[in-house]
Design a protein around this nucleic acid. Sequence first.
DNA 1: GCTACGATCGACT
DNA 2: GTCGATCGTAGCT
Length: 210
Amino acid sequence: MLSAFQQFFTGRPTIAIARDLLGKLVTYDGPDGRTGGYIVECEAYLGENDSASHAYRGRRTGYSESLYGQPGNIYLYQIRGHYCFDIVVQDAEEPQGILLRGLEPAVNPALMARHRGTTGVSVTNGPAKLVQALGIHSRQLDGQPMEGNKLTVDLTTFKIPREIITAPRVGVNLAGKDGAAPQRFYVAGNPYVSGMRKREMDLATQGWRA
DNA sequence: GCTACGATCGACT
DNA sequence: GTCGATCGTAGCT
């Protein structure tokens, strides 16, 4: 039996789940304090049939094993010496995940900036940056459920995006089968979206509904 | 054992 | 805009 928390992450299209995650609050209870932020950008990876997915063509190794877990689990992996954080969705038969790419700091922003050694939007405007800002520097949480964990998402604390933009994913081979698929979602105008240009930012509302 | 290659970042022009 | 650093994983010999 799935909990209400797990049910949020299954039973409907991954793309719909990804859009619903925008504005939700991610928190981490680290050894040097609690950090957290609102999700402003994420990407959907649709499992074995998605050429950009780690599970493409049924590829299943120790490295990507966590994708084949329960909905709401943590998939924490390393790429080019950096950690990235996915939320596992659907179920063990469908190795799908949602990559978090941008957070708006909300819980202890000063500590998050210290973790990154910088200030401003570059604290969390990228998948590896937000992981480092939260204070995560190992794969210790990989494969664990988020519910009741140190690293979790609070589905009851959220902001409502004014407008959601759909776009192709970042850093994937555009020439690949699904390279140009519109599976990236972000809050229009929010400065913590990766690659957001200054003139596209909405500094008055940060992209949130009043 | 060895090599190639990323769901990236930051420095630089 | 371009480019190099970086390092764990996978796949091959």
